[in-house]
Design a protein around this nucleic acid. Structure first.
Lengths: 246, 246
DNA sequence: GAGTGGTCTAGACCACAGA
DNA sequence: CTGTGGTCTAGACCACTCT
C-alpha cells in the first residue's frame, strides 16, 4: 500500500483505489486462513496501521467484505470471519422454500459417493483440466419425510483430500469450510423445467416425466475458482424457488 | 434533518441515522417526480446545503440509491435518475437467457387486454382491497420467431388511468415509468416446474403437459406498493433462468 | 471503563467531462 | 477552465458489548 504512481513520465495502468487494494489483501489473508472461521479480525485501527492507510479506508474495505457476506460486523464487538452455519447457508444458498412461506433445511440421504475421473461433461462445466480426479456424490433430500430433491454433486478431489472417508453431512458447505478450509463465496444457478428422468424418478418415488425444476449450480471460492458442480432435480408441488430482483 | 434527540429524559425510538433520513427524503422526491427520468440531480454540495448536512452524508445516501439502481452516478458528469430503458430492464428484471449464453429481449404479441374487477386471486396476490378495478393483459413473447413465454399480467387501474387505450409496448416497465410516473424498483419471483396448462399450450403451440417453468412475479414500486402481478409460463428447451447467489 | 464498530463532519487532492 | 463525482485522510462523538 506504499507509494505508487510517481514515475518520471507517462505510465499506463492507473491502478485500483487504495480501499480495493486493502480489500484484496484482506481476501488473500482470508483465503490463506490467517483467521479461523468465526474468529475476530484485528480492529480497524490495527489493520490501518498495519497496512499504512487510514482507518476510513480500512472501513470501506471491510464494509465491502461485509456486503459480500465474507465477514460479519457487530457493533461493540468487532469484525468476524463469516461462519458457514446452517442458518447462513439456508439464507444465502438455499432458495427452495415451502409454498406456505417457511424455509426448512431438508434432511439428506447419501445414495452413493465415489472417486473417479472427471467426465467430459465435468471438465466442461467446471473448467477442469482433462483427467482431473473428482468425487461424485448422489443424494436425496427430503422435507417432512417426503423425498423432493435429487442431487448430483461433483467436487475436485485435489481440494478435498480423503473426502471419500467422510460421512457427508447435511450442510456440505460447512464441511468444506471447516475441514478443508474451502469457502464457497458465491454461486451461479441455471434453472429449467424438465421431465423427470428415470434415475431421479426412482429416487424421488415419482413418475418418469413429471415436471421437475432442474437447478444447475456452479459454486465458486473466495478466489473465484470452481469448487463444486451440483445438479438438482426438484419436485415443486409444495415448494418454490424464491428469487429477489432489484 | 435538524436537531432531534435532545429531550429532557428517557426517550424511545432512537431514530435512523442521518444518511438514511437523507435517503428517504431523496426517495420521496423521486416518487413525487421532482426530477424527470434521466435528469441530473443537484450536486452533492447543493443537496448537502439544501438539507443542512455534510457532503459526505449526502454521498452515503446517493451511494445507497445507486446500489439499488435508483440513480446512476457518472464521474465528471453528475448523478442522474435511473432510466428504464430496454438494456436496464433486460439486465435487472429479465432473467431468462438463451442456453448459448446471450440474452435477447423477446418480441411481444398482445393476446388480450381488458379492464375488470380484481378476482379473489388478484386480491390475495397483490394485497388489494376487495373490488379494486384492474387491467388484465395476456401476451405471448417469442424469441427467434418461436413463442416461448405466455404471460398473464394484472395491474391496478388506479395507477394507470386510461391504460386500456394504450398500445402495450415490449418494455412495459418503461411505459409505466414514462407515461404514468410509476417506477418498478424491485420484484420478487417464485419459480416452479409445472405441466403446461391448456390455455398456455395453445398460445405456445406446444403439447398440454409439457414441463414448463412457472414464474410468479410481484413487482414493487419505490414506496413498496404493489405495482404488478405477472405469471409467466416458459418453455425452457433452449432457455434458462439465470440466478446469482452471494 | 475500555474497546469496538457506526455516524458525521471537514477538507484535500484526483480523474473525468464538457464548454 | 470549471464543475462533477471518486478517493483518502483525520478527528469527533455516539452506541454497543463485555469486564
Amino acid at each position: 500500500m506504499a507509494d505508487s504512481n510517481k514515475s518520471g513520465f507517462s505510465e499506463r495502468a492507473p491502478q485500483p483505489p487504495l480501499y480495493a487494494q486493502v480489500r484484496n489483501t484482506l481476501v488473500r489473508r482470508l483465503v490463506e486462513g490467517v483467521w479461523a472461521e468465526g474468529e475476530m479480525l484485528p480492529s480497524e485501527f490495527e489493520l490501518a496501521a498495519d497496512m499504512g492507510v487510514s482507518q476510513g479506508t480500512v472501513r470501506k474495505a471491510l464494509d465491502s467484505l461485509a456486503a459480500d457476506n465474507l465477514v460479519v460486523r457487530r457493533q461493540g464487538r468487532g469484525t468476524f470471519v463469516a461462519e458457514h452455519d446452517e442458518a447462513r447457508i439456508l439464507f444465502q444458498f438455499f432458495k427452495l422454500v415451502g409454498d406456505s412461506g417457511e424455509a426448512s433445511f431438508p434432511e439428506s440421504r447419501v445414495v452413493s459417493a465415489r472417486s473417479c475421473t472427471a467426465t467430459a461433461e465435468d471438465v466442461k462445466a467446471m473448467s477442469l483440466p482433462q483427467g482431473t480426479e473428482v468425487f461424485r456424490i448422489h443424494r436425496v433430500r427430503s422435507i417432512g419425510g417426503r423425498p423432493v430433491i435429487a442431487e448430483r454433486i461433483v467436487i475436485p478431489a485435489a481440494l478435498f483430500p480423503g473426502f471419500a472417508d467422510t460421512e457427508a453431512p447435511n450442510n456440505l458447505y460447512g464441511l468444506y469450510a471447516r475441514r478443508y478450509g474451502v469457502t464457497v463465496a458465491r454461486a451461479h444457478e441455471r434453472l429449467k423445467a424438465v421431465a423427470l428422468p428415470e434415475g431421479e424418478a426412482l429416487l424421488l418415488e415419482a413418475k418418469v416425466g413429471t415436471p421437475a425444476l432442474l437447478v444447475d449450480r456452479i459454486a465458486y471460492g473466495l478466489d473465484g475458482s470452481v469448487i463444486e458442480w451440483r445438479v438438482s432435480h426438484c419436485l415443486t408441488d409444495d415448494l418454490h424457488y424464491s428469487s429477489d430482483l432489484k
